[in-house]
Write a protein that binds this DNA or RNA. Structure first.
Lengths: 370, 370
DNA sequence: TTTTATTCATGAAACGTTTCATGAATAAAA
DNA sequence: TTTTATTCATGAAACGTTTCATGAATAAAA
């Protein structure tokens, strides 16, 4: 049994002691710790409200749920609710309805800015509908993805919004599921940015800003997923604007070094043969910009770089790079809307939301005006 | 009534159409949309398991909860659970126990990296104990902070972990609450990094790396909260190591510009009078480093900068700056541990967890070895 | 063998809701 | 005024658990 000890300080007001925490609970994953929070004054129930208002239980329920009730009854109930500070117990509601009012969000983590921003907006969209969000971080682990989905099928959550990396996930017909960014097949609705238009826009912007020779860089993935459309759109844009272009797409298992080699190989006499680069994500663009500068290339003077996602430093400061911005608030609304909507259409839709370009210091917007 | 329309594309397999979403549901905040997810095959219940195993309901409950049961019974129940793929309905559990198995995390948002990383680790610590996390983003809004706390007092959640900015929050005695980073008074346990030691460490590191004249920069807040200890620790470190130091602490309402002015004023003949700067957060350090470079100061050659928090680009890439790292996994464990522990001590503790220094490119670690 | 003590499975009651069959009260029609 | 139709508040039943008083089965003691 592995035990970890962590030294820390406890200030008991004026006393100062050194203590240690036994981390052996790391071995009790999944075993519930029982009855550890005491409730003393329990909250008022519908019964209390009914007694206070002098009406029947069902009447209170109707008022709470906005169903038609006689005006005088409604008033009395509302007053009683106010007086007792009553709030409905949503767990009893859920038990009756066989619903949990909980939606699972499957994302790799909440540490990478795109994922954490997505979680932020999905959380808002769910709270607006009085749904809870169960945050499920998969760490890109295929086993964990399937486990969370199985959990959902056991009625632990009412639906799943998933940004998953496993094309072979088993999702039962009756489990509401909305995929983000990666289509999961014809039975599952999918919401994504308009990746094709985004790629096209990147090419057009680079052309507008005076580029002639451009490159597309993409980290490895053999999945035929939606971000591949970024490449297709970029290609399309390059062709229509007469840009020379080259693609560097990593295979599974190839590391970032490949890009360094690729860029180094394209430098002759200190001059890079590209004057514009489109990276499949801002995260990649961030690294590429550093590499370019290490290689003595100035960004954006020698080479312009456009990323994809719309990541800002510290969440709200300037953009990490010039970028194609994904409309996260709208994406979140759409995911939740599709998941919770009443009537499923026969054919689950693929929804594409429009992207925009934003300047982030790595393009030369005035170059063609000089 | 404000209505927003959002144009978007829907691909219905091969067809391509333009649609519009009516965003009027923005006006229905808080009104539950009813019965919108259908459940068809309902999950097996304890009753089903009892029937399958040929035992009583209570026996199944005991097995599920790990209470003592005769071996042969236990085996039969376990087999039945396996066969039916039974999972306990935690909402019925919660109804019985008058518990929700839900903990609210009050943070300003999940977009700033420190908050999103904290949420990530708290979420892990809670899931480990089979608790759900209700993410409550307050956007630094004092009203929202109080609303969420009131909600908790209505037994909607079992406890709250709060990073709050309102020293006057009303928290009832029987609402489990753990504060993070900012002490909420003698009745509320508080977990924080060892801010004092962190400030001290920053001063010592700057001294080690050859600095003589240093500054401390802090954004405005009149609250006498824990991060103030960073200043006190830094001061202490400067004194014990013989560093000249100056403080620039913004008042409430003063903007970042003040720092630009402060730094500009301390440049004489192109030379900054500080060779080391300690910033109260990495976010501030990030901006300060940009400002310094704009002012023609090289970092770390002319001036070294140390931040606080341990933020990395994109969550896992290199540190934004040389920094004092907060131990987030341990902080999260401690918050959850204190919140859910069985026996409250009479005096709620203030727990300080140790910080470490990490190199992030804005210090000259070898300077004194040159 | 009989009596007493112990172990432990049993299943009814309860948690706080929603639903819906019932029937009282009112309104409309005769 | 009496009969019929309509409206709508009522409260029991049920959702899936946990708890705990009950008593059957076994073990220990006499």
């Amino acid at each position: 049994m592995v035990r970890r000890f962590l030294a820390f300080h406890i200030y008991f007001h004026d006393f100062f002691i050194i203590a240690a925490v036994n981390h052996s609970y790391y071995n009790n994953i999944g075993k519930r710790t029982y009855m550890n929070i005491k409730k003393e004054s329990s909250a008022p129930t519908m019964k209390d409200v009914a007694r206070e208002a002098g009406v029947a239980l069902g009447t209170v329920s109707k008022v709470v749920n906005g169903l038609p009730v006689g005006d005088s009854y409604k008033l009395r109930v509302e007053n009683a609710i106010q007086k007792l500070n009553y709030q409905v117990n949503s767990y009893a509601q859920g038990l009756k309805a066989n619903k949990t009012y909980t939606v699972a969000l499957l994302i790799p983590n909440t540490v990478e800015p795109f994922f954490s921003a997505l979680a932020y907006h999905i959380n808002i969209a769910l709270l607006r509908r009085k749904y809870r969000m169960l945050l499920c971080c998969t760490d890109f682990d295929l086993t964990q993805e399937q486990e969370y989905i199985t959990m959902a099928q056991q009625n632990k959550v009412d639906g799943i919004i998933g940004l998953t990396y496993n094309p072979n996930l088993i999702i039962e017909e009756n489990t509401p599921f909305v995929a983000f960014d990666r289509s999961m097949g014809a039975n599952i609705p999918c919401v994504s940015s308009d990746n094709f238009a985004g790629g096209q826009l990147a090419a057009e912007k680079l052309a507008d800003f005076g580029c002639k020779n451009v490159a597309f860089l993409r980290i490895g993935s053999s999945l035929n997923n939606d971000p591949n459309k970024r490449k297709a759109g970029f290609e399309n844009g390059c062709l229509s604007r007469g840009l020379q272009y080259e693609m560097k797409i990593l295979n599974d298992g190839e590391s970032y070094e490949e890009f360094e080699n690729f860029l180094t190989e394209h430098i002759h006499d200190g001059k890079l043969s590209f004057d514009g680069i489109f990276c499949v994500t801002d995260g990649l663009a961030f690294s590429v910009i550093q590499t370019l500068r290490q290689l003595g290339q100035r960004v954006p003077e020698d080479v312009q770089v456009i990323g994809f996602d719309g990541i800002r430093y510290f969440g709200f400061k300037e953009y990490v790079c010039s970028t194609i911005v994904q409309p996260l608030p709208e994406i979140a609304e759409m995911c939740v809307e599709l998941l919770l909507r009443e009537n499923m259409t026969a054919i689950p839709p693929l929804v594409c939301l429009p992207v925009t370009y934003a300047y982030g210091g790595t393009t030369s917007e005035n170059r063609n005006r000089e």
